[in-house]
Design a binder for these strands. Structure first.
Length: 1174
RNA sequence: GGGCAAUUAGCUCAGUUGGCUAGAGUGCCAGCAUGACACGCUGGAGGUCACAGGUUCGAGCCCUGUAUUGCCCACCA
């Protein structure tokens, strides 16, 4: 041997070298042209915002286990790595850094805004380079076997192409539209920000109670709610607000500001059930509604408790509303009451006079906004500045009691024309003045101190304003339905199954997806917007022709707008948006931008838009690449449950949408133009209806949903906490699907013969091949979704960068080694949803955790056991014996399942144990139970191999008699290395090299490559039930003798004399045949082995499996008596329990006969032993 | 408010269609420099399976309720 294993296991001494070898020899590079069943995983791309923590580490470890195993199984396996640009998170981090170091904001990085934008993006790229490299290096330190040459970035050219293609297709199919949405507006930075970037500050303010005069005039009388008092229905009018004010239902059109497009609000009310669906989560508005003062507690109130039947005369003349944002009353367009509230439902249809401005606004019924039991039951409604109120607006849209919508704000936080005399004031100033004026007018009923949470921008530290603005949306219903179906019918399976519920319930809501972000770091929306009516001759004559021509060429798509839309009375060119398929198409761009007629939308797409394309954009889609043909659909997605909705659901939708009916495989000659015309069959009705297109663009589709409340750029694609799972039909369906698919335990996927008993909880009704074909035809991005647990810290909090409790896996690698990290994480990958990881600091200040001692100890054990085995193989060579049987069939599967005549009982036993372990590992990994896989490895190697096998053969291993065992030991080490390589690759690869030196030929199945990572996964051979049975008996006898010795404090080295009385001839023979084994492992000399022998005098007595054991040399009779008494007591208890059971007629009648027989046998054995004990 | 989970040994967790005396690691106790390993070996102690009902011959497991904890969603006029 040229080298040998160092005496001490030192992971840091081997890991870097081993990894370099893998890279140098291109062990991870996948070739689509290579043979082998495809196996593909795409990494959930980590955000480039920072470094990976243990949450990423567990996720990536598991992916590596799967990939390495598949590779060893001879599959054409690929693991595609990559990073996510993480729009807002990354931009925010970089902007913050710039602000701290240079004091500049993003607008002042260069002379112009456009140049500043370029500069910021340049700097973010620099950041990306730095942190991206760090992340990739972390993955390599962990041992991840990614195909690094295919590393992707969600903002690289390949992904960009997929993004543009998808957006264009969606636009063409009418599935993207422009709509209104309340966003979190940062008036300082003049951008919308995500929910994540809001922090809440408790602010001491006031709750202002303001009186609105009730006016019973000819004002609009919205229809009453469904409460009581039929016959009071007011005349239906279409106008929703008082004619006297001139404020119409689409007031915002006139009042819009430059940054707010004057589009008619396009959203229709969503379903009745979810009315409170807010557009944007924030808490600024929490007191921005109103309630009537409590009648009872406010004696000064001029309001008497009204009775529904009382005449109007005694009814109050005012309502009093309360708010923490009094200035918003300028934008009120209604006050709302509950239709069933007898205090107020008589007033529905009347109006109130808005203080200060004097407009009349209607009193409407809204049973969703208003809780009649809360406060007094009157709420002011400011649709443009409060999510709930906006929902009210939407609910009443196109109904008799439609209300208006008034935007008060300019983007800079000053009030606009709609604020009348308050125009130009900042919100805070306006508030002061409004309050003063209300007091002067005698309309301020009460001011009470109030504490409330106010959302602030994390970046500018200024209060957030809810602000109505134009955003792009993806229409979800047609995309969601097929994606629901494939999970319902089990085409895509979740592990554990319960996570499918979350997917189904979220997707089932089909909330439209807002995709635009007012940021710079990301994929820019490829839409050009018209800025003015046409005025130059060429615009009248040629532009439309060109656009039509380009449309036919699939280079652009345009969207029309109604000529009646304010500001666009442009009949010559009724086009407001042009979507450009390739933003590098200069001919188109130059034409559009000439004279500034069109400008590109400044917004970018939601990060999740590019993430949604990840499984195929990484493989080259929309090009027909060989990689796409080979590896799509991918095999499994591993991720955390927090992004089942944000990411998993969207990948399924977009995969089915983009690749649904177009088979990437075999469609070689097709160009882009072809592929985008295909859509899944089920989309055609909706997607290709011209009528629908138009309505989508005009925003009048009755099916449109209110936008979802998910503006968050969530943190990463990596495991974290969980999202909610709403109730509803999805849940039922999931359960049904689960229960129906559970029954037939048909093997699925990569099963081996012995693992049938516990296979995947779901099983496909389709034959194996058909299932894959079906997956491909449907375009789903993966067959399985495996959810790994969330790593919590010692306090039970989720590990995350933002909380600062994240632990860098590299720290653990330095304290424990990468294999220890991986092995421990694998044991934690149970079906639970959270695992705790108590963290502490080591002497160097690094984060670490004792939990990883488990993995490190195991690796240490492996290291030393390997050294021992190898040293014995060396002995073979030293004495000139040939341990390398020339004729060994290296490729014959399951050779070890056939013991040779030379094999001793321990040899046969350990071979059987190994075969069982392989089967267990296969089924564990097939069901993504990585904990069971790790445990199987642990139990086999440490408990079976080291504790029993090695100890059994140790004494003879170097002798002639040990020749067969030497071969078995080498084979078992070989098998164990293969079996454990996916989870602990560094140490196994290192030992493998030495094993190849020591025993280049050995008794085990499968190909032996120079590198373990390319060698064969072991086949599961037969179980030797007889050997297992006999060996187990011996283990029992040996343990019992050891126990007796220990109880009586017999010196470890003292050889005691033992007599055995095994029950029956078979047991006697087993003991006799293995006499030496017992003597060696229990440090004893066996005097007699006979069934029914006479107990020696002065012996300690015990029993194992019916075998009486006598150890001579009893030194403390009292202790022995005590021990036996305790034994008798235990036995008596068991006897009582068994008797009770057998005396129960129901038990004997109803329990399985086998069980009853067992009980009887036990009782008999216990009674026999009791009798011997006296 | 809705949902998903969890509650088993001091600690961290398994416990797979309900069925022998509920397991592992770690920690603890006793012993051991033993030749691969003290990151080890041998033996041991330690659990009212959160609580209360129910179903069943039989419940850690199924059902109902309660308590506590975590997470997700919604909300807090």
């Amino acid at each position: 041997m040229s080298t040998e294993l160092p005496k001490n296991y030192d992971p840091s001494a081997i890991e870097a070298g081993v990894y370099q070898t893998w890279l140098t020899e291109k062990c991870f590079a996948a070739d689509p042209a290579a043979a082998g069943e495809p196996y593909a995983i795409v990494i959930p791309p980590p955000n480039v915002t920072g470094a990976l923590h243990l949450g990423h580490a567990i996720n990536n470890t598991l992916q590596d286990i799967l990939t390495r195993k598949a590779r060893m199984e001879g599959k054409n396996a690929i693991w595609i790595p990559g990073l996510d640009h993480a729009g807002i998170a990354t931009q925010a981090v970089v902007e913050k850094t710039i602000k701290e170091k240079e004091g500049k904001d993003r607008y002042s990085l260069a002379e112009t805004k456009e140049k500043s934008r370029e500069e910021l993006i340049r700097r973010i790229w620099e950041w990306k380079q730095q942190y991206g490299d760090r992340i990739l290096s972390q993955l390599q330190r962990m041992g991840c076997s990614c195909d690094w040459d295919r590393t992707r970035f969600t903002l690289d050219e390949m992904c960009a192409k997929a993004v543009r293609e998808t957006f264009f297709k969606l636009f063409k199919d009418g599935l993207v539209y422009r709509g209104k949405r309340l966003v979190n507006w940062d008036t300082h930075l003049q951008t919308s920000i995500s929910d994540d970037e809001i922090y809440h500050e408790t602010v001491k303010t006031n709750l202002w109670h303001i009186r609105y005069e009730i006016v019973d005039d000819a004002s609009p009388s919205p229809q009453r709610g469904e409460g009581r008092g039929e016959g009071r229905n007011a005349p239906s009018t279409v106008t929703s607000t008082s004619p006297s004010t001139g404020i119409s239902g689409s007031a915002s059109q006139r009042l819009s500001t430059p940054n707010v497009s004057p589009l008619t609000p396009t959203l229709s009310p969503r379903g009745e059930r979810e009315p409170n669906q807010s557009l944007v989560h924030h808490s600024v508005d929490e007191s921005d509604g109103a309630f009537l003062e409590s009648f009872a507690s406010d004696p000064e109130s001029e309001i008497n408790l009204p009775n529904d039947n009382e005449p109007d005369a005694v009814r109050p003349t005012h309502v009093t509303v309360a708010t923490t944002r009094p200035e918003t009353l300028l934008g009120d367009t209604a006050v709302a009451v509950h239709s069933g509230d007898p205090r107020w439902n008589w007033a529905i249809g009347k109006s109130v006079r808005l203080p200060l401005l004097g407009r009349l606004i209607p009193i409407i019924a809204d049973d969703i906004l208003v809780d009649p039991t809360f406060g007094s039951g009157v709420v002011k409604v400011t649709p443009a500045h409060d999510p709930n109120d906006y929902a009210v607006y939407q609910r009443h849209l196109k109904k008799d009691d439609e209300i208006g919508l008034i935007n008060l704000l300019n983007p800079d936080g000053t009030l606009n024309d709609a604020a009348g005399p308050y125009k130009g004031l900042y919100v805070s100033k306006a508030r002061t003045k409004v309050v003063e004026d209300l007091e002067a007018a005698g309309l301020m009923a009460k001011i009470e101190p109030y504490e409330t949470q106010v959302g602030h921008s994390d970046r500018s530290k200024t209060p957030i304003q809810p602000y109505l603005s134009d955003q792009w949306f993806v229409h979800m219903a047609p995309l969601a339905e097929p994606a629901l179906q494939v999970v319902r019918d089990g085409t895509i399976k979740f592990f554990p199954e319960r996570h499918a519920q979350q997917y189904l319930s979220w997707l089932g809501e089909k909330r439209d997806w807002p995709i635009s972000r007012q940021l710079w770091w990301g994929h820019r929306i490829p839409v050009w917007t018209k800025t003015r009516p046409v005025k130059y001759p060429r615009e009248f004559t040629t532009l439309l022709d060109k656009l039509n021509q380009w449309t036919e060429q699939n280079r652009v798509q345009y969207g029309e707008r109604k000529s009646s839309d304010p500001g666009f009375e442009d009949l010559q060119l009724p086009i407001s948006f042009v979507c450009v398929r390739n933003p590098d198409d200069q001919e188109v761009i130059v034409e559009l931008e000439q004279d500034g007629l069109f400008v590109q939308d400044p917004d970018i797409l939601d990060t999740w838009f590019s993430s949604a394309l990840w499984p195929f954009s990484t493989l080259g889609w929309p090009e027909s690449t060989a990689a796409l043909a080979k590896w799509y659909p991918t095999s499994v997605l591993l991720t955390g449950r927090d992004i089942i909705t944000l990411w998993v659901a969207r990948m399924v939708m977009m995969g089915m949408y983009n690749l649904g009916t177009t088979k990437p495989a075999g469609s070689g000659g097709e160009g882009l133009a072809d592929s985008i015309n295909f859509g899944p069959e089920q989309f055609h009705d909706v997607a290709h209806s011209p009528k629908r297109d138009k309505r989508a663009m005009q925003g009048h589709d009755p099916n449109f949903q209110q936008p979802e409340n998910q503006f968050a750029e969530a943190e990463a694609h990596t495991p974290s906490p969980q999202r909610g799972e709403g109730g509803g039909e999805g849940r039922t369906s999931a359960r049904q699907a689960a229960s129906t698919s559970r029954k037939p335990p048909t093997a699925a996927g990569e099963s081996t013969p012995t693992e049938g008993k516990r296979l995947a909880p779901h099983s496909s009704p389709l034959p194996a091949g058909a299932r894959e074909q079906n997956l491909a035809a449907l375009g789903v991005p993966f067959a399985h979704v495996a959810i790994n647990p969330t790593i919590l810290d010692g306090k039970g909090e989720r590990m995350s960068k933002s909380k600062g409790n994240g632990v860098d896996p590299v720290d653990i690698i330095e304290t424990h080694g990468a294999d220890a990290l991986r092995f421990t994480l694998a044991t934690m990958a149970t079906e639970t949803q959270d695992v705790r990881m108590p963290v502490k600091k080591d002497a160097q200040g690094r984060n670490t955790s004792d939990k990883f001692d488990f993995g490190r100890n195991f690796c240490n054990k492996l290291w030393n056991a390997a050294r021992f085995v190898l040293s014995n193989l060396d002995a073979d060579a030293a004495v000139g014996r040939d341990s390398k049987p020339a004729a060994t069939a290296q490729t014959t599967a399951g050779l070890l399942s056939r013991p040779t005549e030379a094999d001793s009982l321990p040899d046969r036993w350990i071979i059987s144990r190994f075969n069982q372990t392989v089967a267990d590992a296969n089924s564990a990994i097939a069901t993504y139970r990585f904990d069971l896989y790790a445990k199987a490895c642990y139990d086999f190697f440490w408990r079976d191999f080291c504790d029993w096998y090695v100890e059994s053969v140790k004494s003879t291993l170097k002798t002639d008699a040990g020749a067969a065992s030497r071969l078995v030991a080498a084979a078992m080490l070989d098998g164990a290395l293969r079996l454990m390589h996916p989870v602990i690759p560094f140490i196994t690869e290192t030992i493998w090299t030495q094993l190849n030196e020591a025993a280049p030929h050995r008794r085990l199945c499968g190909r032996i490559e120079r590198r373990l990572c390319k060698s064969a996964w072991p086949a599961a051979g037969q179980i030797d039930a007889d050997a297992e049975h006999v060996f187990a008996r011996l283990q029992g006898v040996i343990s019992t003798i050891r126990n007796l010795r220990s109880e009586h404090k017999v010196d470890l080295k003292k050889r005691v004399t033992v007599s055995l009385a095994p029950p029956g001839a078979e047991a006697v023979k087993a003991a006799q045949d293995n006499r030496g084994l017992i003597e060696s492992l229990a440090t004893c000399t066996i005097a007699t082995i006979a069934d029914g022998l006479t107990p020696p005098a002065d012996a300690m007595r015990a029993n194992s499996d019916g075998c009486d054991i006598y150890v001579e040399g009893l030194s403390d009779p009292a202790a022995e008596q005590q021990r036996l008494a305790k034994r008798k007591e235990d036995l008596s208890k068991q006897r009582a329990a068994l008797k009770g059971r057998l005396d129960n007629a129901s038990y004997v009648a109803k329990a399985p006969p086998k069980l009853v027989e067992e009980s009887k046998a036990q009782l008999a054995a216990i009674e026999a032993e009791l009798e011997k004990l006296g």
